[in-house]
Write a protein that binds this DNA or RNA. Structure first.
Lengths: 230, 230
DNA sequence: AATTGTGAAATTGTTCACAGCA
DNA sequence: TGCTGTGAACAATTTCACAATT
């Protein structure tokens, strides 16, 4: 049943997920499936086929099945996937079946927007600490969260068991903020500054570069191109 | 020197850029090179090699050369690329050598943050219209830009020659906002709502999904994985 | 001596196509 | 019959490796 052939991945044992390295695109699509399943569940579908998911998200059915197959066999031949259960499984794979404590560095425009961003909260990402280096902001209260001095980051990370740090400071200050987070033992960083940060091995960094996306649009407009299907 | 050699798109001749389809990843990296070159120029480098660029952005030299080669031969063997000129060339390719008029739909948290986002302005993306459907917001002034009723979007698009629309409304309202933009003739849309929007052929849509990025982090933390190099 | 530009090779990712099951 | 799960075929992307050039 569980076609999981435990595999060794270098040396020791290796988990569930593996033998083959899961690609970044597969993980991204898992997020997509998760959101689609939430919607489908709300629409009353008890069962969903790879075709349904594919049509809804503009992918191919084979792609959906292949992605899911890396993690196990969740479907029933002839029937499809049980909506609710598949959603639960994907939530477990993505780790959104738990709460993550998130620290935010930077209480500026983007930072403020993120504190109110519903989608984070809905998925269990709870911002419970905000850091800044502006003395005028420190000590003040933002949506019920006190803004701390970035100097106290390590202490707060420990005290509040913060696992993820979001960087929302200007580009010039971003590497320093990143270093502070790494120094405090953080292993996952989401960066909104338009700059390539350096992190040591073992720390996962994702950079959300909004300028890059709008430049892509400008490229297609400039070159009269048909959009490259995403 | 607008090096844009007009091209027909389907049968006839094909431009500079092309004959081979430029991949999305190449375009993204062009944005990266552009930013790196701006920095290098500021640091006083007159010349830069593919190796320099690669090291700086954690890519391979071959990748840099291959990407650039799709658009022409900008370098000198033995020497490298002229920093300033390469930057100018890439700016022309990306279309950031001109000003783009951007309309923003949604005057909420994310929308407000975008209006103040320096990186957009720096690259020539000027938000000069804001739309909302909340009567309390309409008519008020946000950073010098009057908030208009979304009903007037088509008229404003025409009047202000708006070429790009940014959607920053809740997921439930996003498709409708998108339809309005498409109806007004917009060909490039940047969407911040966590939902897969439908657009007709000929319209380029990019979706910036912040939840997806943080879920990726949660995945790596959950699975004790080494980060997949980006 | 150094570095580009680029075919060819290697790798990675996607789609096909079909056996296996419900 | 319908749809999953998956190896094999195919396609796209990246890296290699080297001739060309300064």
């Amino acid at each position: 049943m569980n076609s999981r052939r435990a595999k060794s991945d270098g040396d020791g044992d290796r988990p569930v997920i593996s033998r083959r390295r899961i690609s970044e695109s597969t993980i991204r699509r898992l997020s997509i499936y998760y959101r689609a399943l939430s919607a489908l569940e709300g629409e009353g579908y008890h069962t969903v086929s790879s075709k349904d998911l594919a049509r809804r998200e503009k992918l191919t059915p084979a792609q959906v099945r292949k992605d899911l197959s890396f993690f196990g066999s969740f479907g029933t031949r002839g029937l499809g996937y049980p909506t609710k259960e598949l959603k639960t499984r994907i939530a477990a794979i993505l780790g959104v079946d738990q709460t993550w404590n998130v620290g935010l560095i930077g209480a500026g425009n983007i930072g403020s927007a993120l504190v109110s961003y519903k989608e984070f909260q809905k998925q269990g990402f709870v911002i419970n600490a905000i850091f800044d280096n502006d003395q005028r902001k420190i000590g003040s209260n933002h949506k019920g969260i006190v803004i701390s001095d970035i100097k106290d980051l390590a202490a707060e990370v420990k005290k509040r068991n913060i696992q993820i740090v979001v960087i929302a400071v200007p580009a010039a200050a971003a590497q320093q903020a990143c270093d502070v987070a790494v120094e405090a033992g953080i292993k996952a960083i989401l960066n909104f500054a338009p700059i390539n940060l350096k992190v040591p091995n073992g720390v996962t960094l994702r950079t959300e570069n909004m300028a890059m996306e709008i430049e892509y649009l400008s490229f297609t407009l400039t070159n009269h191109m048909r959009p490259i299907p995403t």
